[in-house]
Design a protein around this nucleic acid. Sequence first.
DNA 1: CTATTGTTGACCTATTTAATCAAGATTATC
DNA 2: GATAATCTTGATTAAATAGGTCAACAATAG
Lengths: 148, 148
Amino acid sequence: MKISTKGRYGTRALLDVALRQNEGLVQLKDIAESQQISLHYLERIVALLVKKGFLTSTRGPAGGVALGRHPADIKISEVISVLEGSMAPVSCVDDPSTCSRAGFCATCDLWGEVKESMEGVLEAVTLQDLVERQQKKLESQPRINTHE
Amino acid sequence: MKISTKGRYGTRALLDVALRQNEGLVQLKDIAESQQISLHYLERIVALLVKKGFLTSTRGPAGGVALGRHPADIKISEVISVLEGSMAPVSCVDDPSTCSRAGFCATCDLWGEVKESMEGVLEAVTLQDLVERQQKKLESQPRINTHE
DNA sequence: CTATTGTTGACCTATTTAATCAAGATTATC
DNA sequence: GATAATCTTGATTAAATAGGTCAACAATAG
Ligand code: FES
Ligand code: FES
């Protein structure tokens, strides 16, 4: 029941960009450094986020990425959905036709409830919420900084 | 975010045994057949459940397994915990000391909430609940039977 | 004793994850 | 328009995990 690094790194990258919105374009190099992620791997992940419109990108010198939508309009559930796929713990939940037991399987009803519950949590939180939470954390621990 | 076959098969196996409680010992062979799981692989999974006391086993002719605890006393969260390990979507949630970002990482607080939410769902459901749900399902669809 | 049934450790294969690399496309700037 | 910085893309790969198999073994009813 783990979230892969794709989902984790991707979420952190988005948060990183959101926190630096006022600084203009953010370079992948800087995100990689502050988030301690391999640059090459981050490129791979960011490409997905760009394709789905969470980020916009600009090539060339002084290029970088920026948020493609307002952070209050980005639900974390959407991000995870793009990076991790469905949150269903078993495939029968999303597509009962793939399973011969569908329709009379009590366990999969339960897995469905688990999915709903996780989605509920992640739908209730936007990137803006994460930004605010992060800022609050940094306030109370002023020595530590996520970038630099 | 998938549950592996270990957790899924194990839960179904327990449910299968619970549904046949009155028939005495249940043989792995029969569980494997009715649940459509490879016998060898099921042995592997059942061994874990026996070790943790969810099942008791008897070897020899006419042997088999039986519930080791009353179904109303077996929370599904315990079963998943034994078969899948912690439900934490990232390891930092369970052991912040493994992560250099712990303490000032807003994303992992969120992953913690996801974990709590999943645990909440699975703690509220016992094997007995699953038995009742399953029986209800079989009632309304009398043609289909999970065993035989 | 013997047939039946669960136990265990070793082994294997396919898939997924996590990453790396290199060539390429775009663009600001001089 | 040459150059260097930056994102893009496809190929490749190493490591981990999932999923399963096998064979030898231990216990026990009859
Ligand atoms: S195992 Fe597929 S519906 Fe339950
Ligand atoms: S990444 Fe480890 S605490 Fe957030």
